[in-house]
């Protein structure tokens, strides 16, 4: 079957999709967007978290045919998505909001969402396999709840497993992003 939907603001068409394929498979294997990770395919790890019509969901649990005509944001589009949001509220002072010359090898100079920069700065990335899903979930939480308590952060991220960090640096990163967001506001 054919599926048409919007990913990170761009219309996309996937052809010859097997009816049992998930949104995750279509993103990764058909649209060249492997940022969303396949770690469990059963909604028990959050590594494949994307926003579907704005709402964080596990893309492994969305049948490809279900996204027809809908909007998806993946980690690849997170910086733009967050950038548009902060422009919309007049916030242009996020520490990473400006694009620098991009280094194709390291990605240095890439425009990043505040939560992405905070993950790097706080040491919240190790193997990085859980990172894309955590970023999408954390960014959405900060959008809803700009001043979260620790318990709020833990609850909002309780659907995202990380095996490397013990979560401490992830907590630091979210706190850091929230603090920078409030300074910038």
């Amino acid at each position: 079957m054919r599926v048409n939907f919007t990913v990170n603001g761009r219309p996309q068409e996937a052809d010859d999709v097997w009816e049992g394929e998930s949104l995750l498979y279509v993103l990764r294997e058909r649209l060249g967007l492997p940022g969303s990770k396949n770690a469990c395919e059963q909604g028990e790890c959050g590594s494949c978290t994307v926003r579907l019509d704005g709402v964080p969901v596990c893309s492994c649990l969305v049948a490809a045919g279900q996204v027809e005509g809908r909007e998806v944001v993946t980690v690849e589009g997170l910086a733009d998505y967050a950038g548009q949001r902060s422009c919309g509220t007049g916030d242009r002072t996020s520490p990473s909001g400006t694009a620098r010359d991009t280094d194709s090898q390291t990605g240095e100079g890439t425009r990043l969402a505040p939560i992405q920069q905070a993950f790097i700065d706080a040491g919240a990335v190790q193997c990085g396999f859980c990172t894309p899903g955590l970023l999408v979930a954390a960014d959405e939480m900060l959008e809803r709840n700009p001043d979260p308590t620790d318990a709020d952060i833990r609850e909002a991220l309780s659907g995202n497993l990380c095996r490397c960090t013990g979560y401490e640096k992830i907590m630091d990163a979210v706190r850091l992003a929230a603090a920078r967001q409030s300074e910038g506001a």
Binding site: E29, G32, G35, V75, E76, A79, Q117, G123, T131, P132
Partner: peptide
Amino acid sequence: LRPDGTLKVTGEFAYSSDMW
């Protein structure tokens, strides 16, 4: 800071399962 940090937070870092 990690040299692969930016690639990992943007989804561009290629894991073995991302190979195509």
